[in-house]
């Protein structure tokens, strides 16, 4: 059975998208990403070091853009203008690449998204021809508006970025998923494999994570665990779970033929 993730007319086998930050070194980054099976990887856009360590290896040496779909992000941007500028630079950097992750933060302590600035940036970027995957609060009305603006994927938080607190509001996520015509991916908050499975069982089309893998005791092992959890959660969602029954006990073994 082919069950592919489709984002902006391109299909992917893996429903796990991973960040490339916070690893010990590029070797570990590469090993974890290989273990995760991710095809889409996020990168940040930052000022280049000038005049120091000219021969220093770069992330791109370890993760060639030909091998992965890069998803440049706007992490650290607090205004729509900065986010748009950052992604225009990313498009130039990556030879006209259109698929981007928009996030506009509202507060440095919580990294909670500023949805007013996010919506403004999304409108500009969509008009400018970008395929926008947008990080957002888990507000079903905002999520719908982002879809209507033309974002190609809506990515509500499960809990705060880097918190590892898991799926705090499955009910909101479920409403967002039920109402959406574009893929809904959980972005941020997953802490361990069971969180990923829960998000996928809710019907998320995919999950984007970074810290849950990079900050694990053994990132490469956790990357493999996340791959399996996303696959398991997806299959459980497609299979359709049995109904929950609090009291009507139903034995799995025959009730007849017992010895007496």
């Amino acid at each position: 059975m082919s069950d592919l993730l489709k984002i902006a007319d391109k299909t992917y086998k893996s429903r796990l998208l991973v960040g490339t930050g916070k690893y010990k070194d590029f070797t570990e980054t590469r090993a974890a990403i290989d273990a995760s099976g991710a095809e889409i990887i996020t990168v940040a856009i930052r000022r280049t070091n000038i005049g120091q360590n000219a021969g220093e290896p770069s992330l791109l040496d370890y993760l060639p853009p030909e091998e992965f779909t890069y998803l440049p992000n706007t992490a650290g941007c607090y205004t729509a203008d900065d986010a748009v500028r950052t992604l225009r630079l990313a498009r130039e950097l990556l030879d006209g690449h259109k698929l981007v992750k928009l996030e506009v933060l509202g507060d440095p302590n919580t990294l909670y998204p500023n949805m007013i600035e996010t919506i403004a940036a999304a409108k500009t970027l969509v008009k400018d021809g970008f395929d926008v995957m947008v990080y957002c609060s888990d507000d079903p009305i905002i999520a719908k508006q982002l879809e209507e603006i033309g974002c190609v994927a809506v990515m509500p938080l499960a809990s705060l970025i880097g918190s590892g607190m898991g799926i705090l509001n499955p009910w909101n996520l479920q409403i967002i998923i039920e109402n959406a015509k574009v893929p809904v991916l959980v972005d941020a908050g997953v802490g361990t494999a069971s969180d990923a499975a829960i998000a996928m069982e809710l019907g998320c089309q995919g999950i984007l994570m970074n810290t849950a893998i990079a900050a694990a005791g053994n990132p490469v092992l956790m990357a493999g665990a996340m791959k399996k959890a996303v696959e398991a959660g997806r299959e459980a969602y497609l299979a359709g779970r049995m109904p929950k029954k609090l009291y009507s006990a139903s034995p799995s073994s025959p009730t007849t033929g017992l010895i007496s």
Partner: peptide, 10 residues
């Protein structure tokens, strides 16, 4: 001038 590149990020 702003001169930027891609770095690790989530």
């Amino acid at each position: 001038l702003e001169i930027v590149g891609a770095v690790g990020g989530g």
